[in-house]
């Protein structure tokens, strides 16, 4: 059976994906350190600034994360056909059908794969939208924790979270959400790549997917 190459992901989406993914890794590691520092610099005056460095990396990665999130929101509105928001949500009969089809496929009840879409299936698309919404809250809580004395962040931070400590609590819980999401995401991507040899994994590097010639 012959395959044909089809362009699915724009360069900006691929950049967003890797900036988002790598910043999450950096943020989780440094975030855990900031939450519960596992080292103890016993020697005084030893040129060791562990916490300072961890926080610095955390903040830089936080800005990368914010930029990636904004890029994805931009693409939800101005991206290509497969990247835009309506394609991700069960709002059309075609998408609703795909949603249930995906559920059946993931539970090994059905085998056939919808061939009318190059982008995400609707279950994945919805999850990604939810993750971006979580990222918005993560960013707001993060900036509120970083700049509690700056007017705008103080106003919105107090309005949404009430206090620094509550913002910190939400910030920590959302980190777990991102970690659990990343785990399931990796598994399902590999699972789909094995089930349907479309080149799903390489598509996030090259932007190209493969479909059967009809």
């Amino acid at each position: 059976m012959a395959y044909e190459k089809k362009k699915a992901w724009s360069i900006l989406l691929r950049l967003y994906h890797w900036a988002f993914a790598l910043s999450i890794v950096a943020l989780c590691i440094t975030g855990f350190y900031i939450h519960d520092p596992w080292t103890n610099t016993v020697a005084e005056g030893s040129q060791s600034f562990v916490m300072t460095w961890m926080r610095f990396i955390h903040f830089v990665a936080g800005y990368v994360f914010t930029g990636a999130m904004l890029a994805r929101i931009f693409l939800y509105i101005f991206g290509n056909k497969w990247e835009r928001l309506p394609e991700q949500l069960p709002v059309t009969p075609r998408n609703i059908k795909n949603f249930f089809n995906t559920l059946l496929r993931y539970s090994y009840i059905k085998d056939d794969h919808d061939t009318d879409r190059l982008g995400h299936n609707v279950l994945a698309g919805m999850t990604y939208v939810a993750i971006i919404v979580a990222a918005v809250f993560q960013t707001i809580s993060g900036f509120y924790l970083l700049f509690p004395e700056i007017g705008t962040w103080e106003v919105y931070g107090v309005m949404i979270f009430g206090s620094q400590q509550y913002a910190r609590y939400i910030h920590h819980l959302l980190m777990w959400l991102f970690m659990i999401f990343a785990f399931i995401h990796l598994y399902l991507v590999i699972w789909n790549d094995i089930k349907e040899p479309e080149g799903l994994v390489s598509a996030i590097f090259t932007g190209v997917k493969f479909q059967h010639k009809t």
């Binding site: 103890n40 610099t41 060791s48 600034f49 562990v50 916490m51």
Partner: peptide, 15 residues
């Protein structure tokens, strides 16, 4: 001490 990563691990310890 915070910036340089020196922390009290539990009350009463050497730190």
């Amino acid at each position: 001490h915070f910036d340089e990563g020196r922390f009290v691990e539990q009350f009463g310890d050497e730190f």
